[in-house]
Write a protein that binds this DNA or RNA. Structure first.
Lengths: 343, 343
DNA sequence: TTCGTCCTTGACACCGGTATCATTAGGAAA
DNA sequence: TTTCCTAATGATACCGGTGTCAAGGACGAA
C-alpha cells in the first residue's frame, strides 16, 4: 500500500539518495541508473511523500495563493490556472484569502508561511499593491510573484505580471468616441486600487487625445460592486440626465451590470439612449440584457504565467528566462450594451 | 526566527513530549505544567511545523476539498466556509477540483491523497454522489463528509449533510400555485445529478398535492447553465406559447437567468406574462431584472458544518456528536421575477 | 600501466515533530 | 510512615525524505 523511497531503492538496487537524485532531476546521474530507478518507480507506482520532502528539504513543495477579492469568478480563474501548473510540477496549492482591511492580515500571513513552509506566493490585486506587505516578504526572503495593474512601470520587474488596464480603458473609451459619444461618464471602482487609477487614466487620456474635456461631474467614485453601479448610474443620470450623458463606462462588469439595472429602473433604453461598458469579461457579462461590451482579460493565462514565473524563481536562477515578465493587455469585446448591431 | 518545539521545551523546563501533549490537548497533563508550557509557547510565538506533524503523526493536519462544479460562487462559498474552520483548528486546506467525466479522476484523487497525507475530505455534489468514488474511499479507510441533495434518506448518515432540495422545490412550486399559476414549466439541470431529481420530485409532488397533472411537455431537460436556460425557455415558449405556460421554474439561478434572457428576446413581460424562479440564491439572482425569486441555500453554514463534522470524525469517536448530521432546507425568497409587488 | 581528476554513488546525520514504553512523582489507603 | 497504584513525565526510536561529505569508479593523460 505505502511505497517509500526505500522500497524503490531496493528494487532498483541503488541507494536511497540515488533515487532521490533521479526524482529531483539532479545532475550527475548516469543514464543507465536513471532508467533503472525510473523503471522501479513506475513499477511500484511510487509517490514521494510531500510532508517528508517539505521537512527534510530546504525548499518546500507548496506555494500559496493570496487574495482579497470578492469576485468569485476572478478567484476561481486564478486558482485553476495556478493549480494546473502546480500539478504539473508536483506542488500543492495552499489558498489564503485574507482581508486587506484587517490589521491582523500580515501576522496571519506570516503564520501561514511559517507553518506550511511555503516555497513562494502568488499575490493578486489589490493585495499585490500593498507595499508594506511586499517589504515584509522581502525581509523574510520569501519568493513571490505579483499580478498588478500597470504598464510595466514598476522597478522590480522580475516578480511582476502586469495587466494593462490603461490601454484597455483607452480602447473602450475610443470605441465609445467612435460611436459618436461625447459625454461619457465613468463609474470608478474602489479608491486606492491601482486598477481604478489605471482605468481612469486610460479613459482620461483617450478623451484628451480626442480633445474632449474630462469633466469631474462625469465621474462617480464608487467601488467594484453591483450596488455601486446602481448608485452611480442613478446619481449620474438623475433629474432627467441634465449632464447629457450618452455613455457610462463601468469600472468592472459588476458596476456595468448595476448601471444596466439602474437604467432599467429609470426606463432608459440600452444602447439606444445610453451605452454601457464593463471591464474584465466575467461570465455574467454575457448574461445581462443586453450583453456587455467589455475588455476581455485572460485570467487563466495570467495565473498560469504567474505560477510558471514563481517556479522559475524558486528553482534558482538557472532557468530564469529574461522575457518571462509579461504585460497582458485586455482586448475589447463589443457587445450589445454599446452597439445595437452586435446584440 | 524559527522556533521549534525544543526551544519551547527548554524555556518551560519540560520535555519535548510534554510540550507536544499540551499543544495537542492530550489528557494527563497537570494544569501547572500546561500553563507553564502555554506561557512559553506564547512568549516564543511558537507555531508547530505542519510538515513535521504530518510526517511523524498518524493523522495529518490537512483536509481536502473536492469539487467538480462550474459554479464559481458555490465553490468559493464552500472554500471559505471550510477554510474558516480549518484556521480555527490549525489545519491546512488542499483544494482539488476534478473533472467528474474524466476517468483519471479517481487515480488523480488517490495520488493526491497519498502525496499529501490528507486527514479527510469534504465532497461536494455532484462528486459526492459517485458511489464508486465512495467505495474507493471506504476501501482506503479515508475519512470524508459528503454534502448531498436529499432528505436524510441515505443509509450512512454519519458522513452526510443534506440539502433538502425536495422541500425547497415544493415550496417554490406552492408559491407559484398560490399566485394562481396552473401551467408551470420546469427546466431541469444536469441529468444524473441528485439535485435535479430532488428538485423535480418536489415540483411534481406539489403539483400532485394540488391536483394538477404534471405534464411531460412542461419539462425541459437541460443542464445547470445560463445557455441551457435560454434554450429551454425558447423551446417551451415557442410558437406563441401554445402550451399556455405562465410560469417557468429554473433548476438553478443560472437557468432562471437564461430563461429571463430568452423571455426578453421574445418580448415576454416578467412577471406580468410569465413568472420565473431560480434556485440557490446566487449573488447574481439579485442582479437580474427583475430580481429572481429563488430558494436561499446557506452555503457558508453548510460548508462550515461539513468541516466541523469532518474534524469530529478524524479526531475519533470521543466527541462525535449524535445530532451533528443535519439537513439544511433552503428557504423561499420572493422577488420580482414571480411577484411584481416585491420588485 | 599509473596517476590524477572529475563524475557517480553511498553512508549517515538531520529536518521537527509524534508514538511507545519505561520511569518517576503524587496521592490515597493501610 | 510505608505501600501501592495511577497519573504525569521523559528518553528514545522513528516518520520519509534531503544535505553533506567521503568513497568508489571511469576515463584521459603521462
Amino acid at each position: 500500500m505505502k511505497v517509500t523511497i526505500n522500497d524503490v531503492a531496493k528494487l532498483a538496487g541503488v541507494s536511497m539518495k540515488t533515487v532521490s537524485r533521479v526524482i529531483n532531476n539532479e545532475p550527475s546521474v548516469r543514464k543507465k541508473t536513471h532508467d533503472l530507478v525510473m523503471a522501479a518507480v513506475k513499477e511500484l507506482n511510487y509517490q514521494p511523500n510531500l510532508a517528508a520532502r517539505n521537512l527534510a528539504g530546504t525548499s518546500s513543495y507548496a506555494i500559496g495563493l493570496v487574495y482579497d477579492n470578492p469576485n468569485a469568478y476572478y478567484v476561481i480563474d486564478m486558482q485553476n490556472g495556478v493549480l494546473s501548473r502546480c500539478r504539473q510540477e508536483g506542488y500543492e496549492l495552499v489558498i489564503h484569502p485574507c482581508s486587506y482591511a484587517d490589521d491582523n492580515m500580515k501576522n496571519e500571513l506570516k503564520t501561514m508561511i511559517r507553518r506550511s513552509r511555503i516555497a513562494g506566493l502568488v499575490l493578486t490585486p489589490p493585495l499585490s499593491e500593498q507595499q508594506d506587505l511586499i517589504d515584509e516578504l522581502d525581509e523574510m526572503n520569501m519568493h513571490y510573484v505579483r499580478i498588478l495593474s500597470g504598464r510595466g512601470d514598476n522597478n522590480d520587474n522580475s516578480s511582476c505580471i502586469y495587466v494593462n488596464d490603461f490601454a484597455a480603458a483607452y480602447e473602450i473609451t475610443t470605441h465609445l468616441l467612435q460611436l459618436g459619444h461625447k459625454n461619457i461618464a465613468f463609474i470608478c471602482g474602489d479608491q486606492g486600487h491601482k486598477s481604478t487609477a489605471e482605468r481612469l487614466a486610460g479613459y482620461q487620456q483617450a478623451l484628451a487625445d480626442h480633445h474632449i474635456e474630462a469633466r469631474e461631474g462625469l465621474l462617480y467614485r464608487g467601488e467594484y460592486s453591483f450596488e455601486s453601479g446602481v448608485e452611480g448610474a442613478k446619481e449620474l443620470l438623475k433629474d432627467g440626465n441634465t449632464l447629457g450623458i450618452t455613455a457610462v463606462m463601468g469600472g468592472n462588469d459588476e458596476i456595468a451590470a448595476g448601471a444596466l439595472f439602474a437604467a432599467r429602473l429609470m426606463n432608459i433604453a440600452i444602447p439606444g439612449e445610453l451605452a454601457i461598458t464593463g471591464f474584465e469579461d466575467s461570465p455574467f457579462s454575457k448574461q445581462t440584457w443586453p450583453k456587455l461590451t467589455t475588455a476581455h482579460q485572460d485570467n487563466d493565462e495570467i495565473s498560469q504565467h504567474a505560477a510558471r514565473l514563481l517556479f522559475s524563481k524558486t528553482r534558482g536562477a538557472r532557468n530564469q528566462d529574461k522575457d518571462i515578465c509579461r504585460i497582458f493587455t485586455p482586448s475589447l469585446v463589443i457587445r450589445g450594451s454599446s452597439d445595437a448591431e452586435t446584440a
